[in-house]
Design a protein around this nucleic acid. Structure first.
Lengths: 341, 341
DNA sequence: GGAATTAATGCAAACGCTTGCACTAAGATA
DNA sequence: TATCTTAGTGCAAGCGTTTGCATTAATTCC
C-alpha cells in the first residue's frame, strides 16, 4: 500500500491539509511541524500522487512530443534539447512517434484530448490543412510546431532558416571556389525544409547571375539511396554540373557513392555540398561541406516557447528563426587565391 | 470549459454513472441510451480526463523510458520498437534521458515514485549496486532493463548477446580469412556490452588457438575519436595486428580515419571489424564488416516484457536474449578459396 | 486588560471519474 | 396472482490531492 498524506497526517497528529501544505512549502506552516512532517514523509517513503495533484490543479506537468519518421540523429538531439528545458521547468516529456499523416493527427488528438499533457511540441515536415484545423479547433491545448515553414502566422513555430542556409553556402562556393555549374537534388516534394532550401539555392544562383538548366534539378527523397540515384542521373548528363548541392547530408552521402561508382573523385572531378551537418558529414571522406543546423538549440527553443505559452495564457503566436552556419569540409574545390567572401 | 460526463449526463437526462458506463461499453446499458450518449458526447467534443481515470483506476497507462547518453540512431530504433508495442497495448511512452549515473537514478525515482507511470524501461550501460537497490526496494513499479549483462537474475532484462556476436564474427574471420593476428579496441570499462564483447573475442581466439599479446588490447570509449587514437597506437606497434576488432562501429570509423592518416588501405594493409551494424557502417568505405543488432526488436521485446509484467502481478523475472548476426562488408580480406565456415 | 491583528492549523468541498450496491420496472416462472 | 429473475439505472462513496474559509491560539497594540 502506497503511503498517502493521510497516513502521514495520522502519524503526525495533524490534519492532512497541514501535511499537504507542509510538503508544498506553504508559508503559514510552523517550521517545527514542517520539519516533523518532512521527516515522517521520508520515513514512510512518501511520494505524492501525480494524478490526484493533476486532477485538482488542472495541469499535468507533461508536454507531449510528436515526432515524424526521421532517420539519423536529428531525433536524439531534439529530444535532448527539449528534455533539458522541460526538465528544468518541472515538466516531463512524452514521446509519440508517428509514421503517417493520419497517425500523427491521431497522436495529437489523443494527447491533447485526454488532458494528459499541458502542451504539445509537434515536429512535422509538412503542415496539412487538416492538421491546422485540429490545432486551431482544440484551442485548449497549446501547440508549438517545429517545421521548415515560417509562413504560418497563426501558430507558434520554431523554424530553421533553410532559405538563408542554402543561400549562404551556395553563394559562398560561387564566390570562393568560382563554381558556375551547380545542380541540386531536392528533398521530398511536400517537405517544407526541402522547399525552402531549393528556394535559397535558386536565389543564390540568380543573384550571382548563374544559369540553372532544368536537368540540374532532380527530385530526391532525403534518403541515401535517393541521393545515389539522383546523382547518377546528373553524372550521366552530357552537360555535367561541377558541383552538386544535395538537399541533405544523407543524399550527399548517396552522391559520394554514385561518384565513387563512376570512378570519379571528390572534389577533383565533382564537388558535393550537403545540408544538416549531421554526424555523418564528418565521417564520410572527404569531409562534407555542409550547412550546420543547431538541432539541440531547436529543441530548447521549442520547449522554451511552449513553457512560455503555458505561463502566459494570452501569449501571442511567435515565430522563432533558427539560423544556420556553414561547415567547410573538403568536398569542394580549393579556395581561389586572392578571392574571398 | 472542458466538457465532463456530468455535462453529458445533464443533456441526456441520465445519471453521470450511466454516462460513464455507456462510454466504457458496460454490458448493462441499453443500446438506445448508449447510442444517445455517444452522440451527445461527440457533439460536446467530450474527452475523458486522463487523471481522474488514473486516480480511481490506480493505473496511468504510461510507461517510462529512461535512456542513457547514446550517440547515433540506437535511440530512435529502440523508441520506435517500444512505442509500437506500447501503443498497441494502449500505453503511452514517457522519455527521460539522463546524463549521469545520479540523474538516472533520480529520473527513475521521480518516475516510479509519483505513480506517474505503470512501469519503467531502463536502458543503461551498467547496473550499479545503488541502482539495483532502488529498483529492488521500490518493488511497486515494475522495471525492465535493457543491458548487455544477463547475469542479473532477479530482474527482468532484455539483453543483447554480445558474447556470441563477438565470438561468431571473430571465429568467422579467422576460419574464412585466415587472420591470426587480431587486436581489439575495448569499449568503456564499466560498460557491460563492451565487457561481453571482449569476452567473446577472447574466447574465439582461444578456441582457435591464437595468441593475444597485451599490446593488442586497447581501451576505447565507444566514440570515434577514441577509436582513432586507439588505432593509431596499434598501427605504431612493431608487431602490428592484421585486423582490428573495434568494440563498436563508431570506433571502427575512428580506425578508418587513423588508417587513412597512416596512408594504409583497408582491407589491403589492415582489416577492420565493427559491432552494432549502425547506419554508419554501410556509409563508410569500404563498407564495414560488423555485427548486426536488431535494435528495433530489442525495443519491442522490452515493451512486451513490461506489458506482460503489468498484466501478471506474480510474473517471474525473465531474461530475454537477443541474438546478433554477421554483416559481411568489405573491410576484411578476401575469402580464402576452398575454405568455408 | 480588552480589542485587534497575526500565525498556525483544521474543515470540507472540489477535481472528474469508476464501481459496488440498491432500486425499479419489466418479463418469466410456478 | 404472487414470486423470482433480470435488464437498465441511479446513488453515493472513494481515488489522493489542493485550497478557500473558518477557527483557534498567540501576540501586539492602545
Amino acid at each position: 500500500m502506497k503511503t498517502t498524506i493521510k497516513d502521514i497526517a495520522e502519524k503526525a497528529n495533524v490534519s492532512f491539509a497541514t501535511v499537504s501544505r507542509a510538503l508544498n512549502n506553504h508559508p503559514r506552516i510552523s517550521s517545527a511541524t514542517k520539519e516533523k512532517i518532512t521527516k515522517i514523509a521520508d520515513e514512510l517513503n512518501y511520494k505524492p500522487n501525480f494524478n490526484a495533484r493533476s486532477l485538482v490543479k488542472k495541469e499535468t506537468k507533461i508536454i507531449g512530443l510528436v515526432l515524424p519518421e526521421i532517420q539519423g540523429d536529428f531525433f536524439t538531439e531534439v529530444i535532448k534539447g527539449i528534455d533539458q528545458v522541460a526538465h528544468s521547468g518541472g515538466y516531463h516529456v512524452i514521446v509519440a512517434s508517428s509514421h503517417s499523416e493520419r497517425s500523427i493527427a491521431e497522436s495529437i488528438m489523443s494527447f491533447m484530448g485526454e488532458s494528459m499533457v499541458d502542451g504539445v511540441i509537434l515536429m512535422i515536415p509538412a503542415i496539412s490543412d487538416q492538421l491546422k484545423e485540429i490545432i486551431g479547433v482544440s484551442g485548449s491545448t497549446p501547440v508549438v510546431i517545429i517545421n521548415g515553414n515560417h509562413e504560418i502566422e497563426d501558430f507558434d513555430i520554431v523554424y530553421i532558416d533553410n532559405f538563408q542556409g542554402a543561400y549562404s553556402i551556395i553563394d559562398y562556393i560561387i564566390k570562393n571556389y568560382n563554381y558556375t555549374k551547380i545542380a541540386h537534388i531536392k528533398g521530398p516534394l511536400k517537405n517544407n525544409d526541402a522547399l525552402e532550401r531549393f528556394e535559397g539555392f535558386k536565389a543564390a544562383l540568380q543573384d550571382n547571375g548563374l544559369e540553372l538548366p532544368d536537368e540540374w534539378i532532380i527530385n530526391g527523397d532525403f534518403n541515401i539511396k535517393g541521393g545515389e540515384i539522383a546523382c547518377s542521373r546528373l553524372l550521366s548528363l552530357r552537360n555535367k554540373p561541377e558541383v552538386i548541392f544535395a538537399g541533405n547530408d544523407m543524399m550527399a552521402a548517396g552522391c559520394y557513392r554514385a561518384i565513387k561508382t563512376y570512378g570519379l573523385s571528390i572534389p577533383g572531378d565533382i564537388g558535393v555540398v550537403g545540408f544538416d551537418h549531421t554526424f555523418l558529414s564528418e565521417l564520410i571522406s572527404p569531409p562534407l561541406t555542409t550547412v550546420h543546423i543547431p538541432i539541440f538549440e531547436v529543441g530548447k527553443k521549442a520547449a522554451s516557447l511552449l513553457l512560455e505559452k503555458l505561463k502566459n495564457k494570452d501569449h501571442q503566436p511567435n515565430q522563432i528563426k533558427i539560423s544556420t552556419g556553414i561547415i567547410l569540409g573538403e568536398s569542394c574545390r580549393k579556395k581561389l587565391v586572392g578571392k574571398s567572401a
